[in-house]
Each structure stands twice: as structure tokens, then as C-alpha cells.
Design a protein around this nucleic acid. Structure first.
Lengths: 317, 317
DNA sequence: ATCGGCGATAGACATCGTCTATCAGAATAG
DNA sequence: CTATTCTGATAGACGATGTCTATCGCCGAT
């Protein structure tokens, strides 16, 4: 159904697509005009021109409300792809001009950020002094989506989570460590334990949406330990407090224990099971302009992993 | 490295990307200008503007020769993607407006076209009277590439060939039939034979690049029959003539036998081995605007497969 | 030495995207 | 029930920009 000369000028412009997407998102011409920093009549006119070029209406203008028409959904999705490729082209040009400079927008999990970011920032500043990094803290699903739509350049997540079609580079492995209250039956001894010994224990976990929750849950369920459903922590510090108060046991990522376990009366014991761990890695969009740069980036981050405690089997003060 | 406001206007236009691609392909400003139907100075100016927007030179202008710079290769590839998405958007709009009308550019293998196209065209004309179909005859590799780059809407090929990441819909299975000269030892009898009986036979095949060659070769090698290397036919009619003259044996797709075997003194015998066959199918680009339409298309083509001869075990006149 | 092809430049012109000012319609408030 | 105040569409002016024709300067081929 495409008979047209591929070299003929396209009847619409990238700017028009931006306008359409802005309207679709804000459901308002004025708002979209403001965001695109043009006068509202300009946007109206361009949108009319776009609809004319496509031969169909994209938005139903009822006074007080703007609604995308039925056909609009697919077309807007395609418009998004066009603009994503276009901004990628621009980014690739910038990258070819002066690689690894400018601002990089990185996402990171809340169960990684506080414990690893300072370390990572130090390493990156040393390796890429001209690079400015902006960090965003979000759960896996949000990060993966932001990376896919191009609003983030890359993200640091656990590679075990479902990430879809993203490029990935492992950074380091982060073993889980058993955390129990001081007077717990497993608090005696500091030798590594097997997950089997958790059989029957009440396991406390993070709230829904945290991928760490799913990973720990999977490991525990496989060994007969079940979640205590009523209590879900919204953050690792909270989780640690709950364990310390004797509400149950949990598995903590090694990354966190130095910071967290210091603050609460916990007993930590390493696990014999090597599968009780997550792989922290860097992910980015497959055809991102920064693919090569991000690989170098990952190499720098990987070559000096965070020094974990050599012997986490100790009672924290 | 993307700090820019995503709603800021993009510093280049789709037209400029077309110009750049035209120059890259023709390696000539004048030629590109002619193809794009603009004056050469206009193209020069736009290209200069594009290079300015990207902050780097795309082409090295030596008198007498235009060469893409080092950075240009990746950027031009990205430009191609932008334009492909853009033309897809346009096609999707047209498709949303009036589905299955206009001109469809279809590719088809030379070992399928002559025997199946008339039948397929009849069916399609009946089912989609407003649709005009343009057929292009090429080998698999060329077709797959044309589909990938968007210069064809879809192609009819053997799904056994390596096609990469294309959407596919099977149409019908096309069994191979043994073809031997009249006085050949296998010319006696009309019962189905096993491929084993080809052991030691000299098999004639099509020329390189025909996927039918690879498929038949694979089947034969697996059963001890080897190619007679000096003779390679450039088309099925030639191949049939060669077999008829006693140069060897071959496997012919059922599709072809009605037309081809009628013209030459051959003996045809069906094969017992069901894997001696190819699957003819329709393939198209994953995010093509025509995905849904092409599936309907395939359904129409499939519901009335070409009537093969019920009994191909006969001596052609 | 000259010619013919190349891309770059200059300047005129028209198109088009933008602006400000304003209109028409419809919800809401008094 | 009317005044207000949102909404998006329209009108007209202005400026930027993409286009054109004409021409230049360059280099290789004749």
C-alpha cells in the first residue's frame, strides 16, 4: 500500500509529531502549546496540518475536553517511535563528536542506591571527569519503562527481574545474607547456614513492586519458608527494624548490610546456597546511541566492585 | 548525554535526512538533488544545515568525489530508521483510513512465481478488488533485505530459508517430487520411493543463491546423494531440460511439475519422506503498518492452496 | 589550454511557521 | 439568568527559511 516515491518529501514534520504527542499526553491544546513553548494558535494550525497530511482526525475536539480518536492510538505510538529514533540520531551525533561527556540520566533501584551510589559516583568521577550523572531512584518496572521510552539513558537493576528486550551488562553479584533477631534460634553460631534451615520461619519482605521482594520470595518459597503476609516493609531500613523487633527473619543483600545492620540489633549469617543472590547490572535500550559508551561505563563500574564485608556473620551493635 | 528538553524542536528535518541518504547512496550532490527533485543548491544548503545541526561533517567533499565520513555510517543508518518509521506512520494512517486499498509491493521467489502467481492473483482480485499488487521476482536474500528496508511490503518465500526477524505466516506446504530421465533405473514403476534410493545418484541443482538449491541439497546429502558440481541450472525450466537429457536426477517442487514436466520427457515419482518439502509463506517487517492486513491477506491465500496433481507419478509426454 | 563536470555561493522570491489579537462555544459561579 | 472564564479556532502581520536561477571556483579529462 505504499506506492509513493520514497524520495518524495514527507507531508508532515517532526515538530508536528511532537505537538501531537504533547496534546495526547496533556489532553489540552493550551497545555501542549505551553510545554512546547509555542503560541496555542501555532500548535492548533500545525496539528490541523498534520491531520490533513494523514487524512484523518487525531483528536476529537469537544469544548472542555480533547480526546484521541480511535485511529490515534497506533499513530501516536508510531509518532513516538519516529521521535525516539530522531533524538537517538541527535544523541549519536553528539556522542560521535565528543564521547562520554554531557549529562547521563541513570536510574537505580532503591535497594541499591543508598549503599552503592556513593562508591559508584566516586569511580565514575575519576574515570569520566567531564561526565555529569543524574540519578533517578525507582522500582524496576518504572526504570525499565523509562529506559525503553528514552527518558532514561540506562539503569542499574537486578538482572533477574523481567526486563524485556534491553541490552545488559552484569556489574557484580550481590549475595543474600540471612538476618534474624538477636534471640532467634538461628542467632547462635556464625557458621554459614543452609536455606533449608528456614523451613517454617516467618519471612518478612519488602512491599509489592520491589524486585528484591520477588527474588527473596522465590528463594524462600523453594525452601519451605513462607511470607508473613500482614507485614510488608516499604524500604530496607524499615525491614531491618522489623526483623530486629522479632517480627520474623529476612534475607538482606550483602550490599546493604554494612549500612543497615549497623543500626539494629541483628544477627547476620551467610548462606551456603550460592543461588541466593542477585546480579546487579546495567541495562539500556538496544539501539541507544550510547551503547558503546555504556559498555565502557560498565567496565569501569565492574572493575572495582563494592567491597562487601568479608565476614558478615557477626552481631551488629 | 541527553540533557535536552524532549519537547524542544529538533534541529533537523526529515527532508534533510532524505537528502543525506540520497547523497550517501548516489555519492553525488547533483544526482541526489535530481532524485529528490530539488535544485542542487537547495540540497547543498540543507545538507550544510544538517551537518551544522549535528555538529559534524557527514560527507567529505573532494572535487570529483563525495565520501561519507567515518561518523556518517552510523548516523546514516539511524537516519534510515527515522525515515522508515516516518513512512510507516504515513502508511499506517492510510491503512487506518481505507484498509487494503492502494498498491501493495510483493516479492516472490522465481521458483514459485510462474507456477503460483496466476492462481494467487485470481484469488486476491476476487477478495480485494480495490487492491493493486505489484510483484517483484528475486532470490530470498534480496527479498528479505528489501522487506527489511521497507522497499517491499511483503514477500512470498520458503520459510525454511534464513529470514531473520520477520513476521511470517505459512501458506501451504510444497512437497518435493523425484524427477528422473525416461530410461533411468528409477523410471520403472510409479509407486512412491524413499530418498534412500537416491544413494549414489548424481543430483542436479539450481545455481547458488536459490534457496530451493539449499533445501534440496540438504535433503539429498542426508541420504547419500551428491551434487554433480559442474552443472548448475539458472532456472527450473533449464533444470528440467538437463534432467530430461539424462544428466542426472533432481527433486522438483510439486508446484512446478504441472507446468514444467509437461514440456519434457521426464518420469516423476512422489517421495515417501514427508520432510522432503518446503513451506511457502508470507513474510513482512515486524512493525509494518500492514501487519493486520497482511494476515488477512495470508488467510485468503491459504484457504485455497494451489491444487497439486493428485498423482504425479506419470510419464510426461 | 580548454572544456565539462562537480559542489559552493549569492541573491531574489515565495512559502510557511510563528506571533498577537480576537472570536465562538460551553461549563461554571453568583 | 447572566457574567465569567475556561476551551480551541480564526485572522492578519511578520519574519524565518527553503526554494529557485545564475554564477563562481575547482579539478580532471580531452
Amino acid at each position: 500500500m505504499s506506492i509513493a516515491d520514497p524520495w518524495a518529501p514527507l507531508p508532515f514534520s517532526l515538530r508536528q509529531l511532537q505537538y501531537a504527542l504533547a496534546v495526547a499526553e496533556l489532553r489540552s491544546f493550551r497545555g501542549a502549546a505551553e510545554r512546547c513553548r509555542v503560541a496555542q494558535p501555532s500548535l492548533s494550525a500545525q496539528l490541523a496540518a498534520l491531520e490533513d497530511a494523514l487524512g484523518l482526525a487525531l483528536f476529537e475536539r469537544t469544548p472542555r475536553r480533547v480526546l484521541p480518536t480511535g485511529a490515534a492510538a497506533e499513530l501516536l505510538e508510531r509518532a513516538r517511535r519516529v521521535l525516539l529514533e530522531a533524538t537517538d540520531l541527535l544523541a549519536a551525533a553528539r556522542n560521535a563528536r565528543d564521547p562520554l561527556t554531557g549529562t547521563l540520566r541513570l536510574g537505580v533501584l532503591p535497594t541499591i542506591a543508598p549503599y552503592w551510589l556513593p562508591h559508584a559516583m566516586r569511580r565514575l568521577r575519576a574515570a569520566f571527569p567531564r561526565l555529569r550523572v543524574v540519578w533517578v531512584e525507582e522500582k524496576t518496572a518504572v526504570l525499565a519503562d523509562a529506559v525503553r521510552t528514552g527518558s532514561l539513558d540506562a539503569a542499574v537493576v537486578a538482572l533477574e527481574a523481567p526486563l524485556g528486550e534491553l541490552e545488559r551488562e552484569a556489574l557484580f553479584r550481590d549475595a543474600f545474607v540471612l538476618a534474624v533477631p538477636r534471640r532467634h534460634r538461628l542467632a547462635r553460631g556464625r557458621a554459614p547456614v543452609r536455606l533449608d534451615t528456614l523451613d517454617g520461619e516467618r519471612v518478612l519482605l519488602l512491599d509489592d513492586g520491589h524486585c528484591l521482594r520477588e527474588q527473596v520470595l522465590a528463594v524462600c518459597e523453594a525452601h519451605g519458608a513462607h511470607e508473613r503476609g500482614e507485614l510488608r516493609a516499604t524500604s530496607l531500613p524499615t525491614l531491618v527494624q522489623m526483623v530486629a523487633q522479632g517480627d520474623g527473619v529476612t534475607l538482606l543483600p550483602s550490599l546493604a548490610i554494612e549500612t543497615e545492620a549497623r543500626r539494629a540489633p541483628l544477627v547476620l549469617r551467610p548462606l551456603l546456597d550460592t543461588e541466593a543472590a542477585r546480579t546487579v547490572g546495567l541495562v539500556w535500550r538496544p539501539r541507544s546511541a550510547l551503547g558503546e559508551a555504556l559498555r565502557r561505563f560498565a567496565r569501569v563500574l565492574r572493575e572495582a566492585p563494592p567491597r562487601g564485608r568479608r565476614d558478615p556473620s557477626r552481631t551488629a551493635s
